[in-house]
Each structure stands twice: as C-alpha cells, then as structure tokens.
Simulated assay, not measured.
Amino acid sequence: MIRKIARPMLASVYIADGADTLLNTQAHVEGTEVVLDRIRYVLPRKYAKRISSDPELVTQIIGGTKVGAGSLLALGRAPRLSAAALAAVTVPTILARNAFWETQDSEEKRNRRNGFVTNVALLGGLFITTVDTEGKPGVKWRATKAAQQGKKQVQQALPTKSETEKMTGKASDWFQDTSEKVSEYAHVAQDYVDDNKDDWIKTAKDTATKATGKASAYAHIAQGYLDDNKDDWLKAAQKNTDTAKKGAVKAASKAQEKANFALKVADETTGRAAKKASKNANKLQNQADKSLNKAQKKLKKFNV
C-alpha cells in the first residue's frame, strides 16, 4: 500500500519539472549547453564528437524523459526501469542548475546548495526504487536458487553409491552366468562331435566308394562307345581329306585359268589397255601361284 502512495509522490516532482522544461525550453537551454560542454571535455575526442551539438533538442529529450518515466513510476508500470531512467537524467540537471560552487553570490549559492541537497535526496529515493522488488525475490537470488535447484536435480538423477554397487554386482553376475552357459554349450558340442564322428567318417567313405564305382562304369561305357564308332569316324575323316584335296587342286586350277586368260588378253591388246591388261595378268598369276602353293602344302599335310 505504501508503494502506491510513495511512488506518485516521488514521481510528481519529475513530472512537473519535465513539463516545465518542455513548456519553457529556452530557459533551460543554457544549463544544458554547459553540461554538454563539460561532458565533451571529459570524454575522449572520438566519443565527444558523437555528443549532440543541439542543446535545445537535448533539453526537450530530457524533459520528455522526465514526464514519460515519471508517469510510468506514478502508475506503477515498470517502476524499476522508470526510476533508473529518472536517475540518469537527474544527474545532468543537478550539474546544470545546482552547481553552487560556481557562483560567488551568497544568496544564489545558498539557493543552489538547497536545490543540490534536495535533488540528491530525490536521487537516493530513485536508487531505492530501482532495487525495490516489492517483496519478490531479486534476479541474483533467483539465479542462485535456480543454480542450486539444478545441482540438486542433477545429483538426484545420478545413481547413488549403493545403486552403483548393485548395478556392478548385477553386471558381474550376468557375465559369470553367460560364461558358464558358453562353456556348457561348448562341452555339449564336443560330446556331439565325439559321438557322431565315426558315423560321419563311414558315410564319407561309402559315398567315395559309390562315386568311384560310378566313374569306373562311365569309363567302360565311354570305351565301348569309342570301339563301336572308331571305324565310322576314320572313314568320315578320310572322306573329308579327299574332299579337301580335290578342293585345293580345283582352286589352284581355276586361279591358273584366270591368269592364262588375262595373259592372252594382254597379248592381244595394245597401248594403255595392254599395260593395264598386262598388270592384271601379273596380279592373277601371283594369285594362281599362291593357290598352287597352298594346294601343295595341303597335299603334303594329308600325305603325312
């Protein structure tokens, strides 16, 4: 309940000051320009160049920020963020209006000092508001609590020492049982081989004997077939040999006839046609010679 009263009271100061700044901008431009010059003097040159050179615009921005953030604080909307914004724009206001160390007039110095103290007090109230969580856990506390909760859940998920030992014992028992079963199966297989190897050897010998007998029978059949048909095969081979001899002689005779005819044509013709006929006769004669040589080779082969 106290927050609903205190926040509008604190915000009213800044809302009124911001409204006055917007309505009477020219009255506050000089102070803003002084503050901007001091900021440029303190900052490095590359950052000082980025500071706005329009003090009137900066004054309006500061006034608008005070009105907007003050209104949000009074309504209780984002109070911590709005209080931080008001604290940020209060500092240049103090330097612009309440720099009591810059004046020599005693009355003005006293007024500036009173304003300085008042604004500092208000700034303290803003700082308190920025860290006010309304009884709710802060970000740091919530982060720490979340980390502790996560650590606890991880520890709960991990197996305890007794569970680990139990799992190890089960795995050891399983491996031992498996090893015993494998050994038992191996003995059973060995006994089965010992009991049946004689039968397997006998079966293999019988199969080999049967195969040998069949092979011998097939050999006798093949020999009988060869004896029955060798005379017919020999006659057929001789007949084929005679046919081949006749074909070779006939081919050689035919080639020689062509060569003789071409030679005769060459003798009967004259001029260019005679040359062509003579060339053709020579070509045919070579072919006839080759056919004759081939026939002679075949005849020699068959005689052998």
Rank of each mutant, 00 (worst) to 15 (best):
K181F: 04
K181T: 09
V182Y: 03
V182Q: 09
S183C: 00
S183D: 12
E184A: 14
E184G: 07
E184M: 05
E184Q: 13
A186Y: 07
A186H: 09
A186C: 01
H187L: 10
H187I: 12
H187C: 00
V188S: 07
V188L: 09
A189G: 06
D191V: 00
Y192W: 02
V193P: 00
V193N: 06
V193C: 02
V193S: 08
V193A: 09
V193I: 13
D195L: 08
D195M: 04
K197P: 00
K197F: 08
D198C: 01
D199F: 03
D199S: 07
W200C: 01
W200K: 08
I201S: 07
I201P: 00
K202P: 00
A204N: 11
A204K: 11
A204E: 13
K205I: 07
K205F: 04
D206W: 04
T207D: 10
T207V: 05
A208S: 11
A208H: 09
A208R: 14
T209K: 15
T209R: 15
T209N: 14
K210H: 11
K210Q: 15
A211L: 13
T212I: 13
G213I: 07
K214G: 09
A215C: 05
A215K: 13
S216F: 10
A217Q: 13
A217W: 03
A217C: 01
A219V: 07
A219I: 07
H220V: 12
I221Q: 13
A222I: 05
A222F: 04
A222S: 08
G224M: 04
Y225M: 15
Y225T: 13
Y225G: 05
L226Y: 06
D227R: 05
D227I: 03
D227G: 03
D228N: 04
D228V: 02
N229M: 01
N229W: 00
K230N: 05
K230H: 05
D231C: 02
D232L: 02
W233M: 03
W233V: 02
W233N: 03
L234H: 04
